[in-house]
Simulated assay, not measured.
Amino acid sequence: MVSSAVLAGGGTAGHVNPLLAVADELRERDPDVAITVLGTANGLESELVPARGYPLRHVPRVPMPRRPSAEWVSLPGRFKAAVEAAGAVIDESRAQVVVGFGGYVSTPAYVAAHRRGVPIVIHEQNARPGLANRAGARWAARIGVTFPDTPLRGGEVTGLPLRREIAELVRARAVDARAARAAAAQELGLDAGLSTVVVTGGSLGALSLNTAVSGAVGDLLAAGAQVLHLTGKGKGDAVREELGRAVAAGTVPTALVGRYDVREYLGEMHLAYAVADLVVCRSGAGTVSELAALGIPAVYVPLPVGNGEQRLNAAPVVDAGGGLLIDDEQLSSTWVAEQVPALVADPQRLAAMASAAAGAGVRDGAQRVADLVEAAVAEQAGRG
């Protein structure tokens, strides 16, 4: 059993949510386990971690400069301070293991743990691993990966540890998916009896998704669908204006306007997923993993910037038949009008895609990562 663990990760929901899921699983296995979280003072973890009841200790944020600059001069000193801060927490908590999820705070935690001979367990959420986890993997006792082709030697496929709301929805749908859908539809003010398309580009939204889908509003509604379009903060007016133009042009009857629900943000995304028959979205690791775990088909539009990991994230589900993939530059209102209404109007095809997505999904990622943590601690104890 694990009596004390330090978990490192922060900055984004992609790091914090899996961390909290694993922390909850370790606590469920042993309510007396001492869990300390390393994070930054300003990241998302500064709110979410204390709210979940775990102590948060701050480590200085030390991003690696992308190009030569004055920051390189101060980098060694700042990184040394971060390693010392992480090491102090490891010592004070008498941690048996350090579990890292990537991000700025993980690298100093890995270095401090390695110097002390404390076993390291890593979870990498993306198909293409980040710098922190690539560095820490050299010393890791166990490595869990979300996707099977992630290039980390010794990685074991654990899937993504699901955040609490999604894990609860997985269980609710397994018991009675229709009841879960009806309850969510009522809370959102939607019609549980209509085929539902959810459009989301994340909290910031995605202009290309907004433009392409809203431009095909007439075709979507004519196919009998209702649309929950989450535009991203500050991007709702443009979509509402497009809807208004479609009404004025007569391509959308006034009576159907209410079936196209435009919102800038929805904090309770699990409610949207509970009613969704199809999701049009980016393909971040969290989104892909959650939709697959829930067995929801999707049209994935990878973010066109970065190192290409979003395309890799979606590949296993798409290859299994659980989704479609379209490049951002190829996405258009014409493509949406040609592809999405026909899909929504074909319940047998949607059902087959849902089954394929579920087959590619992992619903017990937190348990699998917790197993790796326990195995690393047991192995270390055996050596001692």
Results as ranks from 00 to 15, higher is better:
108 P>K: 12
128 R>W: 09
182 A>D: 00
138 R>C: 06
121 V>I: 11
171 R>F: 05
145 V>H: 02
141 A>F: 00
108 P>N: 13
158 T>N: 06
161 P>M: 12
109 A>Y: 11
149 D>P: 11
144 G>N: 05
178 R>F: 00
187 E>G: 05
144 G>S: 02
162 L>Y: 08
140 A>R: 01
162 L>D: 06
146 T>D: 07
110 Y>D: 03
162 L>E: 01
154 G>I: 04
171 R>C: 08
134 R>E: 02
160 L>Q: 06
145 V>E: 08
123 H>D: 04
164 R>T: 12
188 L>M: 12
179 A>M: 13
122 I>G: 02
134 R>I: 09
180 A>G: 09
131 L>G: 13
174 A>W: 00
117 G>E: 10
122 I>D: 02
125 Q>E: 00
109 A>N: 11
108 P>M: 15
188 L>Q: 09
110 Y>I: 01
181 R>G: 03
136 G>S: 12
136 G>Q: 04
168 E>L: 13
168 E>F: 13
128 R>F: 14
172 A>T: 07
127 A>I: 09
129 P>R: 06
169 L>Q: 14
141 A>D: 03
158 T>L: 06
170 V>W: 04
170 V>N: 12
173 R>M: 13
109 A>S: 14
161 P>V: 11
167 A>P: 02
151 P>N: 10
169 L>M: 14
170 V>H: 08
112 A>K: 02
175 V>W: 00
181 R>C: 06
183 A>F: 08
163 R>Y: 10
131 L>N: 09
112 A>L: 08
130 G>T: 09
148 P>K: 03
182 A>E: 01
186 Q>N: 00
171 R>M: 08
183 A>C: 15
111 V>Q: 05
184 A>C: 03
114 H>S: 14
165 E>F: 10
173 R>Y: 10
157 V>K: 03
128 R>D: 13
133 N>E: 14
161 P>K: 13
117 G>I: 03
120 I>H: 02
140 A>E: 03
171 R>P: 02
159 G>I: 02
174 A>G: 15
137 A>I: 07
124 E>R: 04
140 A>V: 03
187 E>Y: 00
151 P>L: 06
159 G>A: 08
171 R>Y: 04
168 E>T: 13
148 P>M: 06
177 A>P: 11
181 R>Q: 05
140 A>N: 04
187 E>M: 10
177 A>S: 15
135 A>D: 01
